[in-house]
Design a protein around this nucleic acid. Structure first.
Ligand SMILES: [Mn+2]
Ligand SMILES: [Mn+2]
Ligand SMILES: [Zn+2]
Ligand SMILES: [Zn+2]
Lengths: 132, 132
DNA sequence: ACACTTTTTTAGAATCATTATAAACTACGA
DNA sequence: TCGTAGTTTATAATGATTCTAAAAAAGTGT
C-alpha cells in the first residue's frame, strides 16, 4: 500500500481506517476542500466498512498536524480542510458557499511591510469573497 | 444621543440596549477585535443594567448586516468581530491567539489575476499568521 | 503462535457557541 | 392613550467538536 510509508514517516500507525481515509483524501488527481461531515458521508456512501465519526475527527486532526492537510480560515460554522497543502489562496463564493483555489501565481506578490517584534511570518493567506 | 441617528438610518429602533452596546463598541478612540463573549462580559462588568446574551447576539448580527461591524475570517471556535470596518488585514499571533490590524498601506497592492465568470470581487482579506 | 503492552477505534456522553422559541416588554405612530 | 409591530429575555434546542472509557487492533518479545 502506497500510504503505509507516508503514515509511518509521520509516526502514525497504518491502521485500516487511516489507510481508507488516505484513499479518499489523496487518491484523486485533483485536490479538494471538505468538511468533516463531507468526508464522513462520502466514506459511508462509497465504502462498505464504515468509519466512526470520532475516528474521522481524530485522523483529520492528525493529518493536519503532520501537514498532510490544511485548515482554511473562513467564517463558517464548520471547519474547512484542504487537501491542497501548497501555499495558495481562495475565492469564497458567498452565494454558493463554495471555495475555489487561487494559486499563488494568480495573485501578485504580497509584501507585508509591517513587522511585529519577535514574531516570524508563518503564512500569508488571502481570502477573496465573491458576490453576484 | 449620538447613536440614535445612526441606528435610525439603518432602520434599527434606538432601544436602551442597542444604545448601550453602541457606547461599548463605538465610543472608543481605537477600534478593536472581540468575540460575543468578550462583549457580553465587558458590558456586564462595566454597566449596571445587564443585557441578555441573546440580545448581544441579535444586535451584533444586526450591526454586522448593516456594516457597522465586520466579521474576521479566522479558524477559531468562536466568531471574531472588528469595530474597524475599513478595508484592512490582520496578523494572527498563533501563540497569544491575538489579532493585530494590518492596514492596507502596510501591504503592497494585491492584484487578483484570476477571474471567475459572472462573479464580482466583494473583498480581499489577508491573514498573516505569526509564530515565535 | 502466544502473552503482554500500547495505541487506536468506537459509541455515546459532554461541551460549548450559536440560534430558535415564545412570552413579556417597549417604541412609536395614529 | 391605544394598538401593533418590533425588541428583549430566559430558556430550550441545535449542531459541531471534544471527551470518555471500554473493546479492538497493532506492535513487541519470546
Ligand atoms: Mn473554520
Ligand atoms: Mn470565525
Ligand atoms: Zn485550496
Ligand atoms: Zn481589524
Amino acid at each position: 500500500m502506497k500510504y503505509i510509508e507516508k503514515l509511518r514517516n509521520a509516526g502514525l500507525r497504518p491502521t485500516k481506517q487511516r489507510l481508507k481515509i488516505c484513499e479518499f483524501l489523496f487518491d484523486t488527481q485533483k485536490t479538494f476542500h471538505f468538511t468533516i461531515n463531507d468526508l464522513f458521508n462520502k466514506i459511508k456512501k462509497h465504502s462498505k466498512n464504515k468509519i466512526s465519526l470520532a475516528t474521522i475527527y481524530n485522523t483529520v486532526r492528525s493529518f493536519e498536524k503532520k501537514g498532510y492537510l490544511k485548515q482554511i480560515p473562513i467564517n463558517s460554522n464548520q471547519t474547512y480542510f484542504d487537501t491542497n497543502i501548497s501555499d495558495h489562496h481562495h475565492f469564497y463564493d458567498l452565494k454558493e458557499g463554495k471555495l475555489i483555489d487561487l494559486e499563488n501565481s494568480d495573485v501578485g506578490p504580497i509584501n507585508i511591510l509591517k513587522k511585529i517584534n519577535g514574531k516570524k511570518i508563518k503564512s500569508v493567506e488571502v481570502l477573496v469573497k465573491l458576490e453576484g
